[in-house]
Nucleic acid binder design. Structure first.
Ligand SMILES: [Zn+2]
Ligand SMILES: [Zn+2]
Ligand SMILES: [Zn+2]
Ligand SMILES: [Zn+2]
Lengths: 528, 528
DNA sequence: CAAAGAGGTCACAAGGTCAA
DNA sequence: TTGACCTTGTGACCTCTTTG
């Protein structure tokens, strides 16, 4: 062990001025001693043999060749004098070792890198790639519940649910990144690995010799709830070589905790999110478009036959209907849909809020107030993909398709346009599953619009959610995250502004004698 | 950093190497603060020596020994290659700023210099180099139309189109140039950067324009009619060298840069803020309270004499006034105040927006729209301390004190209560001057409520402001910053919700025949 | 000299391949 | 279909030449 280290030093010294290259290594390896546990030999072999061959290429003997190559390839563009003689190049000392990774975030197997934005294995990477290419997404025949029987030892995820898991873990096209890591990124990765290792060394201490613990085992531990902490720190201080002070311990611990907390939070929110079952959520963009388009064509045929079905005043409708049972402008159709869907919608809405960390702990009155205050925004955000700005069609919660104008008895065209515009704004954010879920959570926790008993608590909750959103955006978009965040805020503002209009829409509906007659539920929904 | 650090510098004759080393060191200790506690010495010496001890395994071997070994071996070896270079001391940061660059002209990422004639990033540089070395040309399978959907987020340029973009931006073999800048060139580069920074916000997508073919010979022909920009560069370099010495090295360079930018931004916003002259801003809380209380007492005395002065219907007032000239419910007093103050208020409002980084560069129509959309919220936030919830008094822009109920001809009591409540919410945030200024700035840049030509730009600006706000909160409140941020968002939301009400209030005022008679300005203000 | 950029290196991940 | 393995483009860093 020691010999190796010394040898490395000597080599470096001999090879002249690699100070810069090596400095980094020094700092990193010094600061991160854990890295070297299983790698001392690897380093040696890498440095000596592994990279020797390629780095000798540009030696004198090959100089002529390489120049020739250039001339050939470039000749078409320009014959600029390029014939400086290239001196022998010194050996380039590469970065130390091939960077150990935490287990695949999706399936727990051995990860092979950061694929589509997520640390994942070859299998998950390939699966996701195939999904991106084949644009005919999967369908779960268990209603998307494959994930739930996780206790089942037979992990039989259907493709659809496997896909969903990938998305939930944050895989997305925007996540792709290329090229090497920066020094900082690399350092962070190493640090994280180190933390994980220490964390998982709880039960496995005595094994000093094993250079590389099987990562697959660890990952499973990590995904499961892990109550035992004190033993971890004890083990740690025991086996970690001196140089550690409490200061760093607590720091690293709190870091780890923070990131763990964030993951937990997200997981809980997303879990609740998946209990929502609007049709649109089970559809890809293309599928949705196809269905909307189909609905549009049906609608157009109907228009050919029955005419435009322009909205008529409520009194007129009511009279015609009671006389002839004719649904002259299609509003009865809407009634029926609402009657069918409202119940399940509200039920799922409530269930979603119960899943939100901390929400159930609020006073029931506060919960009710928040639920009531946020409902319209929530439904809108939930179904933002249901609007099709091109055909002006709309998909209901269960997947029926109507022209927006069929709502015109109650809303103005202007308002419909606004809806569609915002829905496009949201679309342009290209939200991931996680982000969508968190945004829904945030919209439930605005404290300004109701008089809350536990306002402090709600504020606290909202803060967590906003943090989570920023965390996600940062992860996905880096520098651009601020832009997206501000866009999301603007969506909230716009929706708030429109809340009044939403309300008038609902009220207008409720005032319709037909509704009062056929759908008292709607009134209840508004009032309670 | 510490004495040791300084000493090291003397040894490192190569200042570049030194700076690099320090940077790395800083980065590492920032990222991994944990270990630095007890190792600063070790790190320092390692950094100097520039040699690695990569494969030491500190985990289970003798800890103390291994540390010692490191020190020894490194210092031994390091003396060898460095002794030849030992030179004069003390000039370890001779050349101050490493020349900041505008973002890559091709892709917008962080540029690293002028490559092939164009200010560009490492990625674009590498891509173009590979292209030059290639002998088979690229082929676009979308017919070269990858660029067409300009700001489509699904930004997948094919290689051919990426290449085309490089060429369009002026990259070419003839553009290569080596060697250092002349003094003038360098000065111009700095100047240019300065200018860009001031404009800020425009940086992101400057490639919206068409393919501007450029001679590319002198890539830095950023000749701009900017004669009146005084000795900006002089000041700049002066400042920065001063900061450099002071810098304490506790952060990485990029952090420092970011923080510098932030400081600049804040400074500019606050400067504009201080041109606003509402009376309340020149008063401490206590002073304000005293004045409001005094006003309240005067008011109460008046009530004793004249009675409650309850509001009367507009028609009644108008009749009484034209007959008797009696200001029966005090609204004439309000009129007069508004007439006196509105002009200056609007004027200062506009001036404030001109001071906002990037705002003046927006299309004038956009500026007007934003100004109009935000005005009520702006005035409210600006004067949030003017409301006294206890006495229900209100201080006007110039410092006159009225009971809020004197506005009751136009607003409902309910609305007045809301105002007071929000003002208290804002008060509870205990905003600093800077925060208040930034909040005002943010409220001017909500893009959702008007149809903007340069929406992108406004979004970019808002992002900067939101970043600034979070930065400030973080600085002041640490962990609690998120809470405050979310509270501020809630204030914005509440105000948005109330905007409609504000508007009705104003409209109601304007409909008053008295106002139409005495104050056409108010109408103008509303309309233009 | 030192600054600036050309060109080289190689750790990365995207996508393709093909036996299982 | 899957996933281990391979091929290839990428881009962060590095070395080396040129130039004021
Ligand atoms: Zn996996
Ligand atoms: Zn399934
Ligand atoms: Zn670029
Ligand atoms: Zn193309």
């Amino acid at each position: 062990m020691f010999e190796v280290g010394k040898y490395d030093c000597e080599v470096a010294a001999d090879t002249k001025a690699y100070n810069k290259a090596m400095e980094k290594n020094i700092v990193m390896t010094t600061v991160l001693p854990s890295e070297s546990v299983c790698q001392s030999d690897t380093i040696t072999s890498n440095t000596n043999s592994g990279h020797d061959v390629p780095s000798q290429n540009p030696s004198e003997s090959q100089e002529a060749d390489s120049i020739q190559m250039k001339e050939i390839s470039c000749s078409e563009i320009s014959s600029e004098p390029l014939k400086q003689k290239r001196k022998k190049r010194d050996k380039y000392i590469p970065d130390a070792v091939p960077l150990e990774l935490p287990p695949c975030k999706i399936c727990g197997k051995k990860a092979s890198g950061n694929h589509y934005g997520v640390n994942s294995c070859e299998a998950c990477k390939g699966f996701f790639r195939r999904y991106l290419q084949r644009n005919v997404p999967y369908k779960c025949n268990k209603g998307g519940k494959c994930l739930e029987n996780s206790d089942n030892k037979k992990n039989s995820l259907c493709s659809a649910c496997r896909m969903q898991k990938c998305l939930d873990c944050g895989m997305c096209r925007e996540g792709i990144r290329q090229g090497r890591y920066t020094a900082t990124e690399r350092a962070r990765a190493i640090e994280e690995m180190k933390r994980l290792k220490q964390d998982s060394s709880t039960s496995k201490v005595s094994q000093g010799q094993g250079p590389n613990q099987e990562p697959a085992n660890k990952c499973l531990d990590l995904t499961l709830p892990k109550p035992e902490e004190e033993s971890a720190s004890a083990t740690h201080s025991e086996n970690s070589s001196a140089m550690e002070v409490e200061g760093e311990m607590s720091r690293s611990d709190s870091d780890k905790e923070a990131s763990k907390e964030m993951t937990d939070l997200l997981e809980r929110i997303v879990r609740g999110y998946h209990e929502l079952t609007p049709r649109i959520m089970s559809l890809s963009d293309d599928e949705a478009r196809a269905i909307l388009k189909e609905g549009y064509e049906k609608h157009m045929k109907k228009v050919e036959v029955f005419g435009n079905m322009d909205p008529v005043p409520a009194g007129v409708y009511s009279e015609i209907y009671s006389n002839t049972q004719m649904d002259i402008d299609g509003r009865m159709e809407i009634f029926e849909v609402i009657r069918d869907e409202l119940g399940i919608l509200v039920q799922e809405y409530v269930r979603f809020t119960h899943g939100l960390p901390g929400f159930s702990d609020l006073p029931p009155t506060d919960q009710a107030k928040l639920l009531k205050a946020a409902r319209l925004e929530f439904f809108f955000i939930l179904g933002y993909r249901s609007f099709d700005s091109e055909t002006k069609m709309l998909m209901t919660y269960k997947g029926l398709v109507f022209p927006i104008r069929q709502y015109y008895p109650y809303i103005s065209e202007e308002m419909a346009v606004k809806w569609v515009n915002i829905s496009d704004d949201v679309r342009n954010l290209s939200l991931t599953t996680q982000e969508h879920a968190v945004i829904l959570a945030i919209c439930l926790t605005f404290t300004d619009r109701c008089d809350l008993d536990a306002r402090d608590k709600v504020e606290e909750i909202q803060m967590l959610f906003i943090d989570a959103l920023q965390y996600l955006l940062k992860k996905r978009l880096g520098n651009e995250s601020g832009l997206h965040f501000s866009r999301i805020m603007n969506v909230f503002l716009k929706l708030r502004e429109m809340n009044e209009e939403f309300l008038t829409f609902y009220k207008k509906m409720c005032e319709d004698p037909m509704i009062q007659k056929y759908m008292p539920e709607l009134l209840n929904f508004l009032i309670d």
